[in-house]
């Protein structure tokens, strides 16, 4: 198991960066997660299990850090506060611009939706693996992923109507 640890270092660091957005804090979180994996010894033998375990430790460390600082994990925006500043169609942009816009749009997602989208799109985890990392049910993962994708589409394609069930209900109530 220990031989695989260097292979996971970059993944762990990237997930920590995704969570906190700060280089030094991400380094601390990733380092602590790796050392905990070493101290866990031979309890985790399967590479996939180790990958999930490491990501989960980073998530827990991030939450602990937020708790110790008296801060909630940053929630860039709530479901009803979609900022629609994108006016040009995505198809007309360069690839670099597309990437920058997608990253900016994802930063505006609530934390859970952001993490679900990151783990599924970037880490290419399955729904059940994502549920394990975030310690939520697979149904919650599916729901968060659906809402996150709808909001990303809405932010990056202004003419796209929002399909979030939550927002639809809210609109109906209003």
């Amino acid at each position: 198991m220990h031989d695989q640890l260097p292979d996971h270092l970059l993944r762990v660091y990237r997930f920590a960066m995704h969570l906190c957005g700060d280089q030094h804090l991400a380094e601390d979180l990733a380092q602590e997660a790796m050392l905990r994996a070493v101290r866990a010894g031979g309890r985790i033998n399967e590479p996939l299990a180790l990958k999930i375990w490491l990501l989960r430790v980073v998530e827990n460390l991030w939450r602990d850090w937020c708790r110790s600082k008296g801060r909630r994990p940053v929630e860039a925006m709530c479901d009803t506060e979609i900022v629609q500043e994108q006016t040009e169609p995505l198809e007309h942009m360069t690839q670099h611009e597309e990437v920058a816009l997608a990253v900016n749009a994802m930063r505006r997602l609530p934390e859970r939706q952001r993490s679900v989208l990151h783990l599924i799109a970037c880490e290419e985890l399955t729904v059940s693996e994502t549920a394990e990392v975030l310690q939520i049910t697979p149904e919650a993962v599916r729901s968060s992923l659906s809402v996150a994708r709808a909001q990303m589409r809405s932010m990056l394609r202004p003419d796209q109507p929002i399909e979030s069930p939550h927002l639809q209900n809210k609109d109906r109530a209003e």
């Binding site: 990237r14 990437v99 990253v103």
Partner: peptide
């Protein structure tokens, strides 16, 4: 569009490098 967005996110993710 979902595929385009997630490809972009994956590219951005792969550009993140540690020191």
């Amino acid at each position: 569009l979902n595929k385009t967005i997630e490809d972009s996110l994956r590219q951005a993710h792969q550009q993140v490098q540690y020191r």
